[in-house]
Computed example of a mutant assay.
Amino acid sequence: MKFMIIVKATPESEAGKMPSEQLLTDMGKFNEELVKAGVMLAGEGLHPSSHGARVQFSGNKRTVVDGPFAETKELIAGFWLIQVKSKEEAIEWVKRCPNPMDCDTDIEIRQVLEDDDFGAEFTPELREQERRLREQM
């Protein structure tokens, strides 16, 4: 099972405040643990939303909105993508994580959809297309 571990933004991360050397060291150790355990697939921090944009969809219309975005608690400051056996295992890994924002924050755990989750609508042809695309990546 794959899980995306989502680090929520804070006013500090949205202001562009970089982590301390100690936090970077602690996070590096945690990432090493994830890699050594064979569960880490990816992980990155993100620039503040002031450097980003959103594309809003309304039917066929597309509207680009530049950041920053007001709802800090709904923004993402970073993520890990891990592969573990269960949601409980993902939770245990997150509980071991150093506080990534060095302040009050939340980390959200969301399971990544897999082929079988899509049901009959994900036809054999679509499955094959997905397999080919993954090979090309």
Rank of each mutant, 00 (worst) to 15 (best):
45 G>D: 00
78 G>P: 01
46 L>D: 00
20 S>P: 04
45 G>F: 00
47 H>K: 12
76 I>T: 12
75 L>C: 02
88 E>W: 09
67 G>P: 02
126 L>C: 04
38 G>Q: 06
73 K>S: 11
48 P>T: 00
10 T>Y: 04
23 L>A: 04
113 L>M: 13
110 R>T: 08
44 E>K: 13
8 K>W: 02
131 R>W: 01
29 K>Q: 11
75 L>S: 00
105 T>F: 01
109 I>C: 02
64 V>L: 15
33 E>D: 15
91 I>E: 01
121 E>A: 14
30 F>Q: 02
43 G>A: 12
24 L>M: 14
22 Q>I: 10
88 E>G: 11
59 G>D: 08
43 G>C: 09
35 V>I: 15
129 Q>D: 08
119 G>M: 15
16 G>L: 03
81 L>G: 03
118 F>C: 03
79 F>L: 11
3 F>K: 01
137 M>P: 02
54 R>I: 09
89 E>V: 11
52 G>D: 02
87 K>F: 11
86 S>L: 11
30 F>Y: 15
95 K>H: 12
105 T>R: 00
59 G>A: 06
59 G>E: 07
67 G>M: 01
101 M>V: 06
106 D>L: 12
81 L>W: 03
120 A>W: 02
58 S>G: 08
31 N>T: 10
9 A>G: 00
18 M>F: 07
43 G>Y: 07
89 E>A: 14
41 L>H: 09
72 T>C: 04
81 L>A: 04
9 A>L: 01
19 P>Y: 01
97 C>A: 12
70 A>Y: 05
17 K>P: 00
90 A>K: 01
25 T>L: 07
106 D>P: 03
66 D>H: 09
130 E>C: 11
2 K>V: 08
36 K>C: 05
42 A>I: 07
23 L>D: 05
85 K>R: 14
41 L>G: 04
85 K>I: 08
75 L>G: 00
38 G>N: 06
129 Q>M: 12
83 Q>K: 15
72 T>V: 15
46 L>E: 01
35 V>L: 15
135 E>L: 12
16 G>D: 03
133 L>E: 10
137 M>W: 11
94 V>I: 09
111 Q>H: 13
51 H>I: 03
35 V>W: 14
67 G>V: 04
80 W>C: 05
82 I>A: 01
34 L>R: 00
15 A>L: 08
137 M>H: 12
40 M>P: 02
61 K>I: 14
54 R>Y: 04
83 Q>V: 10
3 F>M: 04
27 M>K: 03
77 A>F: 02
54 R>T: 09
103 C>H: 05
70 A>D: 15
96 R>Y: 11
41 L>N: 05
27 M>T: 02
114 E>F: 02
56 Q>K: 13
21 E>M: 11
38 G>W: 10
110 R>L: 13
91 I>D: 00
114 E>T: 12
125 E>T: 09
14 E>G: 00
92 E>S: 15
92 E>F: 05
106 D>Q: 13
136 Q>W: 10
19 P>A: 07
33 E>H: 08
116 D>G: 04
84 V>Y: 06
91 I>W: 01
55 V>S: 12
64 V>T: 15
